[in-house]
Amino acid sequence: MAFDAFQKRKERQLLWLLLPALVPLLILTIYPALYAVYLSMTNEALTGVAAAKPRFVGAANYLRLFSDGRFWNSLFVTFVFVVGSAIIGQFVLGFISAMALRRKIVGAPVFGAAILLPNAAPEVVAGFMWISMLAGGDHATLSKILVFFGLPYVDWLQTFPLFMVVMVNTWRGIGTAMILLTAGLAAVPAEVYEAARMDGANPRQMFMRITLPLMAPTIFLYMLISTVSTISVFGLVYALTRGGPGNKTEVISVYIYNQSFAAFQIGYGAAGAVVALVVSLALGIAYVRSLKVEV
């Protein structure tokens, strides 16, 4: 009985300690998420008549959204962006780097640091550096390299805007993929490889039959994490292209931003935001379930 009372008091104390974290999270993340759902059903705007007297409009914003070619375009661009940079680019190059660094490599820490460096760069710095590398026609570094090999130069951000955005985001995430996959590779017991070598397996077979299957859970988790975090990328794309030229690089987060803060249509922008929230939450729930978090 006395123990029970003690336990209860202790739990109450702990709740007090959690309160300073709980309150801002409720007010500044959970409530805005719910509020976004409400806003998406109004004609709220930053300027004009609707700003003074917002009305409830039901599903009108969603109907408009789903018939808006620019919205579908942003979903398509986001899809290409995620698959191209997170699923393919970062993963493949990160995996290759992790595999290569498993060998006895002279200067391995230097390579590791070099590959991780882009990860440390703030989004705006990354955008600025790459504009300098890509813009400027025949003056751009990447063009100079092409010209050096006798190829014609290209105005990269005008000709292949989406591909360039994918490449820059790939560049930014190789390091994290490498670190995570290195940890996964280290968890594969060395005896398994030893046994396979005894049986005369070649490196290709060992990779296909041992490394990949044993790494599958790590890879799956990595894909979920990077998909979710890539969907929310804003600053990098905005600093690099601001969604242009045309809407060729307008990922969903830039679309929401443009609708809400450039066109001032808050209610309509919120409908786009809700779509992004639902997709991210669904992926997040899949992530939490597959993680089987021990809490």
């Binding site: 993340t29 998420a33 976004a36 929310s232 987060s253 935001a273 809700v274 929230l277 997040g284």
Partner: peptide, 17 residues
């Protein structure tokens, strides 16, 4: 669970509210 899920919410989507 909630704090793991909060981390996946895109900040642009929360920005207007």
């Amino acid at each position: 669970y909630a704090i793991l899920l909060i981390r996946v919410l895109p900040s642009t989507a929360l920005l207007v509210p």
